[in-house]
Nucleic acid binder design. Structure first.
Length: 732
DNA sequence: GCGCGAGGAGTTTTT
DNA sequence: CTCCTCGCGC
């Protein structure tokens, strides 16, 4: 039996076409991973392409690992020399070898989101800019998006000369970048950006890698941003053996600067692009797939593609309305408990998906109450926990003492009597003398300002120096333990004797065991490689599918996964689609939200529940939300709503009417929820025009919540349901 | 320098 | 509701 026997014709076509550029449009559940892995197998086994000439890029480490394993499983293929990695780890690998060409030290550390935040705060302080006017989050977002667009500080400064506000951002960006450099650090975006810079400035280095990676594959291509796109293009342009795989309907990362145009325009980027569409879905039941198709067809900007399946019709989609988010959680956990008790399902058959991490709380509460084992992904990640970050900062300090952020974080943890005033003084001196924070500690006695804390600072400095000297002789995990005892970190928690502190100690122990594990798995494990691994793992990478637990995660994290039974929760306007998308001027935001819904629905293999809570506690206030518009887009005949109590009007809800109105008045929601201000100058039967859809006839106008839902039959795109506030229809 | 308590601000989504 | 910052008293 050959490795191609269980492929369909389209899949086979994609597998066998190895030379030249190819776009594989792979719908949800269409066997995309199988195609990629078989293709690699084919290249090595049948064509004789050398494994080390192949590069496959994925989005998560988990996907990379899985892909590699599946290639290795193919008979007679040795995949150990194939590079399968994420964009970020690919770049780190290149940079560790080459970054000195850009004047950086190859021991650079990688700053995560929290480190970035701290650094931005420092910048604002130093530039005397108020974080009220320039909120830290927006500064970070701005810097990140500039980096993803490959715009460097100087260029940005120049571009914004005439725009005061933007220019301030540019200034912060410049300082931020120089601080990163001084600390010997790169942030996530730099990993990609620096690699691109390297390839752009050094043709010799670029061609070395072009010749190394003659065959390139990129998975989830719809999620690439400009920097990643450029990187791919640079690498592939010499041999043009580039195969990109993706699905424009599953593009859900535009907020991270992913540009859907990268996949939509791929055919124009290279000559003679072969396009293969994988439209047969092997995952979902007929009903589930139909629902997904019905939802996604409301999007305008997409490549035409219709998924079909041979699978059974399956059950209808179960829709459940509850009064509160608590009842929603109770219903879900009841259903799970019932079918496990009846031996129809095991816990790991279920996934609970939600739009925002905050929604997981109630669900957890009820899972615990019912004694259902579960695994939660997202939220605060293991490596982001305070105590773990502290430990890591110690390691970073020992390894790379110019990393000011790490040094400042732990200099007074546990308490050493080095307070904020002292830290500020040291920082000021460091700035003035153009030294690193740590350097000043070593010569504290030279400065009169540091007279009183000098001994404490020196002691800290000596301790770190001593630790560094032991690094070589002790093994990795031994060294970590040595650091923790020497520093007195664990002891300080043990003395606390609180449940919280015990939990922290437990986490630290887990960290040590992870280090041991890492040491066992990698022969040449070093502190650098451990820290690197830590900074690049995603939460989802730790997913153990075999554990018999219910899985909880955001829809974003669920991408690429599948489950027999999915509960899609919080189907409310304002939650999903989120409030942001509902009020956005930009039609694309709602479309992305809809794609997210498409992704969510297509995670389910056999059964899909969609739940909606009429009222929900958010920010400590009760919010009343109408059912999600996405729910309305699913035809009634696909839905079983018999679980829901018959459209009863909850007494409390009714009597709360006045309160609700008060709430809306006070709340930003009045922007969308108050129909008063909406004027519609057209009525049923009128011809109207829309910015994107062109001309059409108004079929129906319904009051929907606080807005009007207008059904229009457009000449070009057919029937559409629009909210009058956003559609901005004009009577012709 | 440190700890506590009050008050304010803030929520998508993550490599 | 919860996390974080700030200011005060020790």
């Amino acid at each position: 039996m050959s490795i191609y026997d269980n492929l369909n014709d389209r899949q086979k076509e994609a597998v066998l076409n190895v030379e030249g550029p190819m776009l594989v449009l792979a719908g949800a559940g269409s066997g995309k991973t199988k195609v990629i892995t078989t293709r690699i197998g084919h290249m090595i086994k049948d064509i004789g392409i050398k494994p080390w000439n192949i590069l496959a890029i994925t989005f998560t480490n988990k996907a990379a690992k899985e892909m590699k394993e599946r290639v290795e499983d193919i008979d007679g293929v040795d995949a150990s020399d194939v590079w399968v990695s994420t964009f970020h780890s690919f770049c780190v690998r290149i940079l560790r070898m080459e970054i000195e060409n850009l004047g950086y030290n190859r021991n650079f550390v990688i700053y995560d989101g929290n480190d970035q935040k701290t650094l931005v705060k420092e910048c604002l302080k130093e530039l005397n800019i108020s974080d009220k006017l320039y909120p830290v989050n927006s500064v970070m977002g701005k810097i990140s998006s500039k980096k993803n667009e490959l715009i460097e500080p100087m260029q940005y400064l120049k571009e914004t000369e005439d725009d005061f506000r933007e220019n301030v951002y540019a200034n912060i960006y410049r300082l931020y970048q120089s601080k990163l450099e001084k600390n010997g650090a790169l942030d996530f975006d730099d990993l990609i950006g620096m690699t691109v810079k390297l390839f752009k400035t050094r043709e010799d280095i670029l061609s070395k890698y072009q010749n190394r990676f003659k065959y390139i594959m990129v998975d989830e291509y719809q999620d690439t941003n400009t920097a990643q796109y450029t990187l791919t293009r640079l690498l592939a342009i010499a041999h043009t053996n580039l195969c990109v795989v993706g699905d424009d309907d599953q593009s859900i990362y535009s907020w991270r600067s992913a540009d859907i145009k990268n996949i939509l325009n791929f055919e124009h980027d290279f000559d003679n692009v072969k396009v293969v569409k994988l439209e047969q879905n092997y995952r979902c039941s007929q009903n589930i797939l139909n629902a997904a198709n019905e939802v996604i067809k409301n999007n305008i900007s997409r490549k035409s593609k219709t998924l079909w399946t041979d699978n059974n019709e399956g059950n209808k989609i179960k829709y459940f309305v509850s009064d509160t988010e608590k009842e929603e959680a109770r219903f879900i956990t009841d259903q799970i408990a019932k079918s496990v008790r009846g031996c129809e399902r095991i816990y790991s058959d279920f996934a609970l998906l939600y739009r925002t991490n905050a929604q997981s709380r109630v669900l957890e509460e009820y899972l615990v109450k019912k004694g259902i084992p579960y695994a939660l992904f997202g939220g605060t990640r293991f490596y982001e926990r305070m105590e773990i970050k502290d430990v890591i900062s110690y390691l970073r300090t020992v390894l790379n003492p110019i990393d000011d952020i790490a040094v400042k974080r732990i200099i007074n943890v546990p308490k050493r009597g080095i307070g904020n005033t002292t830290i500020e003084k040291v920082a000021k001196i460091a700035r003035e003398e153009n030294l690193n924070f740590y350097d000043v500690l070593g010569r504290a006695s030279d400065y009169t300002e540091l007279k009183s804390p000098a001994t404490k600072l020196k002691t800290f400095h000596t301790m770190i120096e001593n630790l560094r000297n032991q690094m070589e002789s002790l093994g990795l995990s031994m060294f970590i333990e040595e650091v923790l005892t020497e520093v007195g970190y664990v002891a300080s928690y043990e003395n606390e004797n609180t449940i919280e502190a015990d939990g922290r100690v437990e986490n630290i122990n887990e960290f040590i065991s992870k280090a041991v594990e890492f040491e066992n798995e990698n022969e040449d494990a070093t502190l650098e490689s451990l820290l690197e691994e830590i900074s690049l793992v995603a939460d989802i990478d730790g997913l153990k599918e075999d554990a018999d637990t219910v899985k909880l995660m955001t829809i974003h994290s669920a991408k690429g996964l599948e489950f027999p039974v999915v509960f899609l929760t919080g189907l409310e306007d304002g939650i999903f689609p989120g409030y942001r998308a509902m009020t956005s001027e930009n039609e694309n935001d709602m479309e992305e939200e809809r794609r997210l819904c498409y992704v969510a629905i297509t995670r389910a293999k056999q059964e899909l529940y969609m739940t909606h809570a009429v009222s929900r506690l958010t920010h400590g206030r009760v919010q009343y939300n109408r059912v999600s518009r996405f729910m309305d887009e699913i035809p009634k005949e696909l839905i079983d709503d018999s679980l829901a109590p018959k459209k009863k009007v909850n007494k409390e809800y009714a009597s709360n009417e006045t309160k609700i109105n008060d709430f809306f008045k006070k709340n930003v929601y009045n922007k969308v929820e108050k129909p008063k201000n909406i004027e519609i100058n057209y009525s049923e039967g009128d011809i109207v025009s829309h910015m994107k859809f062109g001309k059409g006839t108004v079929i129906k106008i319904n009051p929907a919540g606080a807005d009007y839902e207008v059904t229009v039959d457009f000449t070009k795109v057919g029937e559409k349901k629009l909210m009058s506030t956003f559609a901005k229809l004009k009577k012709v």
